Amino acid sequence: SLAHYLLAYFEMTDRDWERLGDISKRVNISPLGCGALAGTTFPIDRHYTAELLQFDKVYANSLDGVSDRDFAIEFLAAASLIMVHLSRLSEEMILWSSHEFGFITLKDSCATGSSIMPQKKNPDVPELVRGKAGRVFGHLQALLVVMKGLPLAYNKDLQEDKEALFDTVKTVQGCLEAMTILLREGIAFRGDRLAAAVAEDFSNATDVADYLAAKGVPFREAYNLVGKVVKTCLSGGKLLKDLTLLEWKELHPAFETDIYSAIAPQQVVAARNSYGGTGFEQVKKSLIAARDRIA
């Protein structure tokens, strides 16, 4: 179902949020008092200053405190994963808005007209977000390359972390805001086209095998038989739903009139009611759980 599809991206972004929270534990460490590399001769209290500045703890090794950029790399890695997820969603929105798919319509608030084709709407937001992903990946790779050969402790090379870090924050924040607007008000799902699409292929072939297995036919036999059924349909220019009951019975006597309801798109979805599946009852539970996690 469409809700199940969208919930997959909710799970991705929920992991992104958890990952950022986990990284914050290693970001909030005070380097104050590490000195240039070896600490200081003055009787300072690093734990006290860290508490005043609301750091969770202090670096236990002054050399590490001066030269560590793991926290920046971790953030860039997490930001890159966020961009992977946004880019995957963008790619699908671009495909779904195309004439060939037509699953969504782009609203004018999130699209521009073509410079040469007056009928065309350009999916600007998802295309730009998809492109920005490479920018963030590049910052991660750049900082990894900077760090890989540096000796302890501070080296001027480390100033390269600033541009990568600040630009990544700005880029990811902008992409998140843009995609939020796109999903909230920039697209309209075409239920008629979505419904038609699931009735035009053989995605319900597995359900034929499941149907036979439920009738006592060994699954291996059922699996091979379904392959023959699909070949029969392809040679005759038919879909599974177009076969007559006589044709079904010629393939196997276990087929009855209930095969038509078993392979109907709504039933195909509803039947996958295992935990985390796309069955409507499971999706309802997942939506409730997702709202609770957001709250």
Rank of each mutant, 00 (worst) to 15 (best):
Y9G: 03
M12W: 14
T13M: 15
W17Y: 13
E18S: 12
V27I: 12
L32A: 07
C34W: 01
A36V: 10
T41A: 14
F42N: 04
I44L: 09
L52Y: 13
Q54H: 15
V58F: 11
D68H: 09
A72D: 05
F75G: 04
L76G: 02
A77E: 13
L86F: 06
R88D: 14
L89I: 13
I104T: 02
S114L: 04
P118I: 03
Q119T: 11
K120V: 04
V125I: 11
P126E: 01
L128I: 14
V136W: 07
L143Q: 06
V145A: 14
M147Q: 09
P151K: 12
K156I: 10
Q159H: 11
E160F: 13
C175Q: 02
L176F: 08
A178V: 04
T180Y: 08
R184I: 06
L194H: 05
A197H: 10
A197D: 04
E200W: 06
R220F: 01
V226P: 00
V226Y: 01
K228D: 04
T232K: 11
L239G: 00
L239Q: 01
L243N: 02
L245G: 06
L251I: 08
H252K: 06
H252S: 06
E256H: 05
T257N: 13
S261H: 06
A262K: 08
A262E: 08
A262Y: 08
P265V: 07
F280I: 00
Q282F: 01
S286V: 00
